[in-house]
């Protein structure tokens, strides 16, 4: 009985993870700006991968589940840092309205990645 429940939960988590990874991929391809793409990849590196790894409960193998849990913890701690590094670099490459001229040619008030600059 418990095996059937774990199989179903594992299958559901795997399906959820794959759906989120697919949406993330579509988002990365469709979003024009770096920040939009970072939001999209956040779906993959956060809940998407976590759901796929959590589906390992269906294996009922302690070693596999342990590795999956460790991988989830590792991803939870490292993926925000990598996203922050990319976002910081993208933000620093943006042209400033007041100050030094941007290195990349871009319309006024527009970042090189096509996003309007709007700090609020």
């Amino acid at each position: 009985m418990i095996s059937v429940v774990l199989d179903m939960a594992g299958g559901a988590l795997l399906l959820l993870g794959l759906v989120l990874l697919t949406i993330s991929l579509i988002g990365v391809l469709r979003q024009p700006g770096t920040f939009g793409q970072l939001h999209a990849q956040g779906l993959a590196t956060g809940p998407g991968v976590m759901a796929v790894l959590a589906s390992s409960i269906a294996t009922e193998n302690a070693a596999t589940i342990t590795f999956a849990v460790l991988a989830i913890v590792f991803i939870a701690l490292t993926s925000p840092v990598s996203a922050h590094a990319i976002a910081r670099a993208a933000h620093r490459r943006r042209p400033r309205r007041h100050g030094a001229a941007p290195k990349a040619a871009a319309p006024e008030g527009t970042a090189p990645d096509g996003e309007p600059e709007q700090t609020r």
Binding site: L38, H39, G42, L43, S79, P80, V81, A83, H84
Partner: peptide, 12 residues
């Protein structure tokens, strides 16, 4: 890290 983990916010 807590905020950056959630996909609707990116820490810049």
């Amino acid at each position: 890290i807590r905020v950056g983990f959630v996909p609707d916010t990116v820490v810049v």
